[in-house]
Nucleic acid binder design. Structure first.
Lengths: 214, 214
DNA sequence: TAAGAGTCGGTAAAAAAATACCGATTAGAA
DNA sequence: TTCTAATCGGTATTTTTTTACCGACTCTTA
């Protein structure tokens, strides 16, 4: 068993993956860590370390690593080899956007059902995904055999939805509400926090405008 | 001038901020680092360090810190005190969702204009935000005096849009396309990467399902 | 077939981040 | 008014992450 990857390393994996998939598309067979680093604007030693950490095979001196193999290793680590089914709660503007987003299949993630409490939406479909009454969460979660719950409701409802998702037997929650969810430790929570990346931008903009030395 | 905050610390600030704004709303005047840590599921020493790093004032033993003061300090660090104007390029499902999202004003971010190359959208408005022809980017950027550009176009168009944004005089880019943008160093880029947070979730789910010891 | 450049793997050093500890201080209860 | 528990500020330690270095190997090309 290879050493565990750090959180930061996990975060970098999808960047490597999209990059390498593009390279594969361009019929590139081998690639060096240095080139990856240059193209992704990363430190080359860091990329080398990352590649060593995720690789199940060796690189070839003066040639690099096999693109296909790295891709396979990353996909394996991220569990993108097996299909994940998800249900989405909250069909507001963000929820709708996610339902219409077809890019998730690159990650083998499939949204199989959506939920809302708005009577006008219930019974309809968005992008062929059925919208159910939130009260049927447990039953529909079961019948669709979904393991991931996506929370797209306003902050003040998020915790309540989280509790219902856990009760319905969900294993992981992808939370788009800007709030810390309190759930049992055996449920995986990953927060999609727009405020975080906006904060990074705003802070750097502030530093730039005020000419603060960094 | 106080010491610079680390990237991770900057990332945590918005979490503190939303949390503290809620507390302020609940008329809480003072709060201890320990309570913040408990409520946000963070290590208390880490929170203490963070608070010391951002605070311009002292805490009071056996009482804690003044909620209003911490909020002010964070907002100041993140530059949320002054208004930021942004333009958005790409009015697909994600772009539309962002245009309809009214939560940005909490961060003093205002989307003042949108752009697309779809003739059917040009001239219309979404959530009172006008949609212009992408060819008018430079002129409209100027007239609206926007400093931030939000990229919501597909990956293969993102780099091109980035170049046009920079040429139009933008200072910072908030990039929602899953690709590494190559722009001049004096332009700030912050990536909003859904794949990253999904990767974290997928990886942990994989570990859980395969009973790998962590 | 030999020289040379590029890249690797592994280890070592440096830097950054997280965590722990401890004496000092203060609010609030007895 | 005194005692106690909570919390602070500051410093020290540990852990993690990043970056640097170096000898070895293999592809390329002259």
């Amino acid at each position: 068993m290879k050493a565990q990857l750090s959180k930061n390393q996990i975060r970098r994996l999808p960047d490597y993956l999209t990059y390498l998939l593009k390279k594969e598309d361009e019929k590139v067979e081998f690639i060096s860590t240095l080139q990856i680093a240059n193209d992704l604007s990363l430190n080359s030693e860091q990329v080398k370390k990352d590649m060593q950490a995720i690789s199940t095979s060796s690189g070839i001196p003066n040639k690099g690593r096999e693109v296909k193999k790295i891709i396979k290793d990353i996909q394996n680590i991220l569990g993108y080899n097996e299909n994940h089914k998800a249900i989405l709660v909250g069909c507001g503007s963000l929820g709708k956007a996610l339902l219409n987003h077809n890019g998730f299949k690159d990650y083998n993630l499939e949204i199989v059902a959506a939920f809302d409490n708005n009577k006008e939406l219930i019974g309809k479909t968005i992008n062929n995904i059925p919208i159910y009454n939130i009260d049927d969460l447990k039953e529909k979660r079961r019948s669709h055999d979904a393991s991931i719950g996506i929370i797209c409701v306003p902050s003040n409802q998020a915790q309540g939805v989280a509790i219902r998702l856990v009760a319905s037997g969900i294993e992981a929650i992808w939370n788009f509400a800007p709030i810390n969810l309190d759930v049992n430790d055996d449920v995986i929570v990953s927060n999609m926090n727009m405020a975080q990346s906006l904060a990074s931008l705003a802070h750097r903009l502030y530093i730039k405008k005020n000419n603060i030395k960094e």
